[in-house]
Amino acid sequence: MSRLIPHPLLSLGLVGVWLLLTRFSLGHLLLGTAIALIAGWALGALEPPALRRRRLLPLIRLAAIVAGDIVRSNIAVARLILTNGRGNSRRSGFVEIPLRLSDPTALAMLAMIITATPGTAWLEHDSENGVLLLHVFDLIEPGDWVTLIRDRYESLLMEAFA
């Protein structure tokens, strides 16, 4: 089984995308499955680092939190852009955050979260000492951002990729 389908998640995802892009029919299901299997073998030849086991529940909770945060920061940034130059005291700046995460998948997810949320931009991560350099659009208190990222996102990611 694992020889035939070396990367079940990737293959499943590819079948899903194939069916989304075409109309659902038996022929497309077969063709999509064949392509997904071949792609799985091709990826197997590249030998990507294996994903470690992760827990799903923290990830679902994280997704819900992030969805809410994206909506909220959209509103916040839109308002800041609208009131820009009319006497608001917005100050942007760089924030350095020491991260405890080291798993590359978890870091990639954190990068996606931080970039997808308007108002924070991921600039640089030093993999040796784990310090992340962020740029924050509305910097009220640098310490707030450190605790926000660490408690809100990083702890859940640590739980999921423990």
Binding site: V71, I81, A116, P118, A121, F137
Partner: peptide, 14 residues
């Protein structure tokens, strides 16, 4: 520039 880096994320998210 670093401020402007935040602006397009409005378009790419919601």
């Amino acid at each position: 520039f670093y401020d402007r880096l935040h602006a397009p994320t409005l378009g790419t998210s919601w």
